[in-house]
């Protein structure tokens, strides 16, 4: 290999660099893209995601001059054994004001169960203005057999909400996260499909 140019890097060094680059791209894919995506979602409201923790330093000053219509939608994922509904389907609110909405869920089995509610807001642009002070979706909800639970969400819709938004839909999806609290952090195992597999863990 006499034709190596004097200024060039050795083959081994170049190979090592390229391997390092490939490894770097893997790290980028696994450890950089997801958090960047989350930040991106938070900024743009992509996917209608709202914050997973309580908003801080929010002062409730209702803007009486403006009315917003707020709708609630509930879904239960994978036919999980819950009945899950908003106490009211719709309310009229003023931006900046502090409100509370109730959701009712019932465990339809005779087993101890845990559910995680996942919020989503439509239109997505409203997501970052929807500030929750307290929400049952912040943590997994435990249900005794047959238990009926009333679960509150306390929130303020920021008065900076863009003018073109007049209706906000807040959606919660109930995901079954298993029969024990230990499993609460575990995502649902999709393999199990519908309810036939539940209640045995």
């Amino acid at each position: 290999m006499s034709n190596k140019k004097p200024e060039s890097v050795s083959t081994n060094a170049l190979t090592a660099r390229l391997l390092l680059f490939a490894a770097g791209m893997f790290v980028f894919g696994v450890f950089v893209l997801p958090p960047v995506y989350d930040v991106f979602c938070e900024v743009t409201g992509l996917g209608g995601k709202t914050k997973g923790q309580a908003a801080e330093n929010v002062v409730a000053v209702a803007d009486e001059s403006r009315e917003l219509s707020l709708e609630f939608v509930t879904t239960v994922n994978q036919y999980a054994p819950w009945e899950f509904r908003p106490a009211v389907e719709k309310m009229t609110i003023h931006p900046g004001g502090l409100y509370e909405a109730m959701f009712v869920a019932q465990n339809l089995t005779d087993q101890f169960r845990v559910a995680q509610a996942v919020p989503s807001v439509a239109p997505a642009q409203a997501a970052s203005y929807f500030k929750k002070l307290d929400c049952f979706c912040f943590s997994a909800q435990e249900f005794l057999p047959g238990e009926v639970k009333e679960m509150p969400v306390r929130f303020i819709v920021d008065s900076d909400l863009p003018d073109f938004i007049d209706t906000i839909t807040l959606s919660y999806t109930f995901f079954d996260t298993g029969g024990t609290t230990d499993d609460a952090a575990m995502p649902e195992n999709m393999d199990h499909g519908a309810d036939s597999a539940h209640g045995t863990r």
Binding site: M25, F28, G29, V30, P34, T173, F175, P187
Partner: peptide
């Protein structure tokens, strides 16, 4: 490598309890 990363995350979601792609 990014594809490899993506499918690895699928794998951990399925078997190791992560939830990169699971809304729950």
């Amino acid at each position: 490598p990014v594809l490899a990363g993506g499918v690895t995350m699928l794998l951990t979601d399925q078997f190791f309890g992560t939830s990169f792609f699971l809304a729950a």
